[in-house]
Design a binder for these strands. Structure first.
Lengths: 328, 328
DNA sequence: CGTATAGGTTGAAACGTTTTTCAGTGCTGG
DNA sequence: CCAGCACTGAAAAACGTTTCAACCTATACG
């Protein structure tokens, strides 16, 4: 329990505590000679700044909060990795919380973040209600929306064009000659699923046959395959709302003797690592996930560090078609 | 920037700040009537405790640190999810940091955690050097090793028996009739890779042919397939150090016309979700990842909250064989 | 009726920084 | 040679909570 404070360092270096603080926070304000002395004392004593004291007095912390919907989904994992990278580079700590799609848990987590006096929050909101986030902002905590476009100009957000992505996907399927297309999706309460369908139908020109599953994992995909097979008439192509569904579906079809892409073309969404690695590699729509996390964090920290010059931005990335074997 | 402090609450409720603090921290010490009044004031004013002030005075925080090697690997993601669950339930915040296998970054991250005065640290160490962790412990920060057995009795750890896992894997392959077996692995500087090989060779009775790759992802697995095919003589079975390698390998083999499991049996390790979802479902060795995270966190928080009664434990989980199509 | 006792509450000190004001020092230029 | 200046560093006052000793006010008991 080594308890070296700024005072001990000051004593050792023969200066005042204030000077030590200056060396730590505004090194240019202090003469090279004293700075050197202080730095030596810091090293010798193994001094580590007490973040809480610092936060308390300075009025702001070096931490940001990150609230995601499902830490288990590779999509969010990639985003998280991007966030961590940027934050860590700038000396910020990231407090991770997982809402698991549960509103109450999200609420609790946001409270914890508020107590910790995080500098700002990156959040993939689990619903559209903006009230909670407004309450954070009233407390002086900046908020940046991740994978969710902000509908207001006083708010930063980073998202990917899901409508465009849906269009791209179906356009590609049409080009490969598909006449009948099924959309396999997770719960249509999820904005992403809805938007991708909207885009898909716009490209298709009329409503698509939809198979809606309760989850968006491989298991659900396999069940979707059984459902499709059970109904009898297989479409030329299937567009899945994410890769996990698509991979499960592919397995289900393959097992029933249906060949991909010869009998049914298949595409996913997200372009997770496993999309390229599956037996028949999966055509998908790639989202710049890592970038999403990086840019969101940069926006947030800019908003925190330069509140004067900061301009709120609603950034919309364009997804990218990645053609592989499952549609050839 | 609502700035409601404990004093404002006290004023509103007509009591002293000390009493408010008692209501917050030791409700049983205060009479129901006053408690009620104070709670009402808290609600009305929207008071949120200032975590830093609290930490500063009380001497300990409500945060723990989690340092993992690769946040992108589903194994660690699962562990992280388990950690977050338990911590969040007990009101602790989790500070996430990703060492990305880089020693320097791990060092920097640990410094940040020390500055934040986290209550304890969960870490998957990127190397064997215990000095860094001892320095943390000197500072009064408890440390629990995750996926890494502690070799000392004064230290908690949670790990999975990788030697046993390796034995199980090879024993199973031998039972399916394999005579020649290749071990495809990531860098043999990684303890897990080494231990699994040790176990595998113990079950095999003599050294295995080893293909060592630089990474442990699907791409590396595919390269391993090319290497294997290039060398000419295919083994009866391949044991991969993780599922990512195995999935990549499966793809590589399948593309070259080699059938799994008819020509070559294949097993992975970790039993990630995709193992069951691949075209030919993958036999694997399941690790209780989620549980790993949960138990590690419980140990850590027990050590923090009940230092008197806490008994250090080195827990070793046993992995479990999951047989699927790739070895039938 | 007075005193011990216990439960509830108060008030002020303390936690380790940052920040601001202020004093001291050595220099420059008139 | 002195006034004024630039620059360093010191001292003390915050920041918002927790904690602890002291202080009440009833109640119970002798």
């Amino acid at each position: 329990m080594s308890d070296v404070g700024i005072k001990d360092v000051a004593a050792r270096a023969g200066v005042s505590p204030g000077t030590v603080s200056n060396v730590l926070n505004r090194p240019e304000k202090v003469s090279p000679a004293t700075r050197e002395k202080v730095e030596a004392a810091v090293r010798e004593l193994g001094f580590v700044r007490h973040g809480s004291a610092s936060t308390l007095r300075a009025g702001h912390s070096k931490t940001i909060g990150l609230s995601v919907i499902d830490i288990g989904n590779p999509f969010f994992t990639d985003v998280t990795a991007g966030v961590e990278e940027v934050a860590s580079d700038l000396g910020y700590a990231v407090i991770l919380s997982n809402s698991a799609g549960c509103r109450a848990k999200e609420e609790r987590n946001l409270l914890v973040l508020a107590e910790q006096r995080v500098r700002g929050v990156l959040i993939t909101p689990s619903d559209e209600d903006p009230a909670r986030l407004d309450r954070l902002r009233e407390r002086g905590i900046s908020v940046v929306l991740v994978d969710h476009p902000a509908h207001r100009p006083d708010q930063c957000s980073v998202a990917v064009n899901d409508i465009g992505g849906g269009m791209t996907a179906v356009r590609h399927l049409l080009e490969t000659g598909a006449k009948s297309i099924v959309y396999v999706t997770g719960p249509l309460t999820i904005r992403q699923c809805l938007d991708r369908r909207a885009g898909a139908e716009r490209a298709f020109g009329r409503p698509l046959r939809v198979v809606e599953m309760g989850a968006m994992n491989p298991r659900a995909g396999q069940q979707a395959a059984e459902k499709l097979l059970g109904e009898g008439d297989l479409p030329d192509a299937v567009f899945c709302a994410n890769d996990l569904l698509a991979l499960g579906l592919m397995r289900g079809l393959t097992h029933a003797g249906v060949r991909v892409p010869d009998d049914v073309a298949l595409m996913g969404y997200d372009d997770i690592d496993f999309a390229a690695a599956s037996a028949v590699s999966l055509t998908s729509v790639r989202q710049p996930t890592h970038q999403l996390g990086r840019v969101a964090t940069e926006l947030l920290l800019d908003e925190c560090d330069n509140p004067a010059t900061h301009a709120h931005q609603q950034i919309m990335f364009q997804p990218e078609l990645v053609v592989r074997e499952s549609t050839r």
